[in-house]
Design a protein around this nucleic acid. Structure first.
Length: 216
DNA sequence: AGTTGGATGGTCT
DNA sequence: GACCATCCAACTG
């Protein structure tokens, strides 16, 4: 499922008539209570319960007290698994995305007005491929927080939707590597090559995973 | 190019 | 009370 989700489109409707959309270019797979890197390893809790629910829903959690990360639940009820969206290529609503980045920075830090102004200028100068090239940044540009957990991504009326990419899109060459930031999980979990990206895409986060010859 | 430390608070033991 | 699916600035060389 992680491989299949590369190239899919995330669409955010609102607030108001605003629309933001991006193409998924990097993901990681987390599956089951046995996966020592997966939040489901504790069994169902208040935070992770939607992972145990039906597929096609969002699981959004906050890390380090600051960043909200978007996951897509992928397995049937009772089988906890999700794909972390690590990076998107912004396609629509870039100005709203920049604004959302500033709003997140201003709300998470205790910063004076001049520091916020400096951050606004820094974000305004970023190229599009640097707006959401990391999991915390994906949540920021889409204006998500943990209250979005449980959102049905397949409901056409939902403010957050997942859509197929263009049917005629070429099969991408993949870059594959171990998941980021899960050394605590121990072997073999921290080594498993469950991070997938579109090879060479400028919006892929650092460190860049090694390119694999295989396609999907 | 690569490394280090600070920000910041929910979550789980 | 320790840990954490992160990000960035500031440093080293």
């Amino acid at each position: 499922m992680a491989r299949a989700l590369l190239g899919a489109i995330v669409v955010r409707h609102g607030p108001g008539n605003a629309v933001r959309a991006g193409r998924i270019v990097e993901v990681e797979a987390y599956i089951g209570v046995a996966d020592r890197a997966c939040h489901a390893r504790f069994g169902p809790t208040a935070r992770n319960k939607v992972m145990f629910g039906p597929p096609g829903h969002a699981y959004v959690y906050r890390v380090y007290g600051m960043y909200d990360c978007l996951n897509i639940v992928t397995e049937p009820v009772g089988a906890p698994a999700a794909v972390l969206v690590r990076a998107i290529e912004p396609l629509v609503g870039l100005e709203a995305m920049r604004q959302a980045r500033v709003a997140v920075a201003a709300s998470r830090h205790r910063w004076p007005p001049e520091r916020i102004a400096r951050e606004r200028a820094r974000i305004a100068a970023l190229p599009a491929e640097r707006l959401a090239n990391g999991p915390g940044l994906v949540g920021a540009v889409l204006g998500l927080d943990p209250s979005w957990s449980g959102t049905d991504l397949c409901d056409p009326g939902s403010p957050l939707q997942l859509r197929s990419g263009p049917a005629d899109a070429p099969e991408p060459v993949l870059a594959v590597g171990p998941r980021v930031g899960v050394d605590y999980a121990g072997d073999p979990w921290r080594r498993l090559p469950w991070r997938f990206a579109i090879a060479g895409h400028p919006a892929v986060s650092r460190p860049r995973p090694p390119t694999s010859e295989a396609t999907r």
